[in-house]
């Protein structure tokens, strides 16, 4: 038994080490002075906070993070709402042409953002939304993958529950509210987490629709730091670590909920 433990720990340790390695290297670089940056030592000989000072002073990282939080939060909320409604309609309402609608949703799943990008840019410009939160949020308030996931989830709910509610004379809206949604809380959480992550990770779109530094999200902020400081990897590293910190802390604090959310959404999918 003890020997079994040893091998399991060894395997767990090796795996963890390789997972952590890139972050470890980044973390190490962020504390190195310029002279040390290319030296092989992982532990800085003369560690410094100078890189963090430069990154914080030069780049409004707080603002970047706040923008990302706001945008990703709103997008997640919106997607959860529209997906729950539409997913319910596709799963539990006898609609003429329901399969067709579902097929359309699945097809939309595959429309790459880079293809619709310029017409969408055109549209957003005509609406006067460039460099505003509108451009970052509104186009993403509905998502085929969310509808897909919610539909799959609502399909797994036992029909009896709905029949019971129907006998009580409930319409679909009430059934959705009182029967389906309470049961779907984990799935909603999962979708929320997924939506939040993908909105948080948006890259090309904010790169183009934002102009002022105040409107940029943290991804673009990191791109900006990389472009501006490509010759100073220690500063880039410090900026990236700072950009990582909030999500990392959020993850560590809410790991359980987060994992449960993702799990339930994925498993019933």
């Amino acid at each position: 038994m003890k020997r079994g433990f040893f091998f399991i720990y060894l395997a767990l340790g090796v795996y963890s080490f390789f997972i952590l390695l890139p972050l470890l290297a980044l973390f190490s670089a962020s504390f190195k002075p310029a002279q040390e940056i290319f030296d092989p030592n992982l532990v800085p000989r003369s560690p410094t906070l100078e890189n963090y000072r430069i990154a914080l002073e030069k780049f409004p990282l707080g603002r970047f993070l706040l923008n990302s939080l706001l945008v990703a939060g709103l997008v997640a909320l919106g997607q959860v709402a529209t997906s729950a409604l539409a997913g319910y309609a596709l799963a539990r309402v006898r609609l003429p042409g329901r399969e067709l609608l579902f097929g359309a949703v699945v097809a939309l799943l595959l429309v790459p953002g880079e293809v619709t990008f310029l017409p969408l840019y055109d549209l957003v410009t005509h609406l006067g939304w460039l460099d505003t939160y509108w451009a970052l949020v509104v186009p993403f308030l509905a998502t085929p993958i969310g509808i897909f996931l919610m539909r799959q989830f609502f399909k797994t709910l036992p029909q009896d529950l709905f029949d019971a509610a129907r006998i009580d004379g409930a319409g679909h809206l009430r059934m959705l509210w009182h029967v389906a949604l309470p049961l779907a809380r984990p799935a909603l959480g999962a979708l929320g987490a997924l939506s939040f992550l993908s909105a948080w990770n948006m890259y090309l779109w904010p790169l183009v629709v934002t102009r002022s530094t105040e409107m940029q999200t943290v991804q673009i902020g990191v791109n900006m730091i990389l472009n501006e400081e490509a010759a100073r990897w220690n500063v880039v590293a410090a900026g990236a670590i700072l950009a990582l910190l909030p999500t990392l802390v959020a993850f560590l604090v809410a790991q359980r909920q987060f994992v449960r959310g993702i799990t339930l959404g994925g498993l019933k999918g």
Binding site: L118, Y121, D122, T125, H126, L130, L207, V208, R211, S212, T213, N223, M224, N227, E228
Partner: peptide, 24 residues
């Protein structure tokens, strides 16, 4: 004058040409 960092040279000209298309 309001100075905006538009990204690297490559990104910036892309952005500029897109803005020419959309006339802003």
């Amino acid at each position: 004058v309001k100075a905006q960092y538009a990204g690297s040279y490559d990104d910036a000209i892309n952005k500029l040409l897109a803005s020419i298309r959309t006339k802003n």
